[in-house]
């Protein structure tokens, strides 16, 4: 296993100082593909937002093994959350990925625009980059959002429920691509999902939020066929 990139030390997560889950100690290895797994309401989005810095931890600390600069996250939110009122093309949305490197009041340089096109191409979104984002299918939106995440030049690619609002074929294509990026570019991937099958198929490690507890480990151990079958029988998943 590679060295830990993100470490949570006795962390409590929640809202307005009210913990939802407490005593979380785990680490996410560099270049790993980790799934945060759990049913709706288990706290996986809260955990993700805390790791991303969108929510402060209620207690404990989160460390990133970087050389001083803050960790760069390429965040892929759920595509259904975006308001269709914005008149943005796929390219406009993907271009936002480079904004983190450009100071206020400065134009986006031509080089960054070219890089965004490369990211759209890499994510298989080049052909619909000129179309309105709101009019794209769920799978196409996911690809544009992945291109935007890649445009941030991320150290960690974070996907929040990429299967939401996306058909089975598109989900498979998106996860295959993310798996490919993880292997080829050695980018750490953090996938939030309630889909056990996807987690088992793609993730090397799993953080499983279940009935107020947090379990971590290699996918093969934590989500063994016997164990998942047993849980299905008990109606727990």
């Amino acid at each position: 296993m590679n060295k830990a990139l993100i470490t949570l030390d006795n962390v409590s997560i929640g809202y307005n100082s009210q913990p939802v889950l407490s005593g979380i100690s785990l680490s996410i290895a560099d270049a790993s593909f980790t799934a945060i797994l759990g049913v709706n309401g288990s706290g996986k989005s809260t955990l993700l937002k805390t790791i991303l810095g969108l929510l402060p931890p209620v207690a404990g600390r989160i460390d990133a093994a970087t050389s001083g600069a803050p960790l760069v996250f390429g965040y892929v939110p759920q595509s259904i959350q975006f308001d269709p009122i914005y008149l943005l093309t796929g390219f406009d949305v993907a271009l936002m990925g480079v904004y983190g490197r450009i100071g206020p009041g400065r134009m986006v340089p031509a080089g960054e625009r070219d890089f965004t096109r490369e990211c759209l191409r890499a994510a298989g979104a080049e052909e619909f980059g000129g179309r309105r984002f709101a009019e794209l299918s769920g799978g196409q939106k996911q690809r544009v959002l992945i291109a935007r995440a890649l445009a941030t030049r991320p150290e960690v690619l974070v996907l929040d429920e990429p299967t939401a609002g996306v058909d089975r074929e598109a989900t498979k294509a998106v996860l295959e691509f993310v798996s490919h990026i993880n292997k080829e570019r050695k980018i750490t991937v953090l996938l939030v999902t309630h889909d056990f099958a996807s987690a088992r198929h793609y993730a090397g490690h799993v953080i499983w939020l279940h009935e107020g507890t947090v379990m971590c480990g290699p996918t093969g151990e934590l989500l063994s066929v016997e164990r998942v079958a047993e849980m299905f029988e008990r109606g727990e998943v």
Binding site: K49, L52, G53, L54, P77, Y86, M96, Y99, G100
Partner: peptide, 16 residues
């Protein structure tokens, strides 16, 4: 670009 990003996707703006 700043006003648009903060309006369109606040979470990503915070992460950036």
């Amino acid at each position: 670009k700043e006003l648009l990003l903060v309006s369109f996707d606040r979470e990503t703006a915070i992460i950036m």
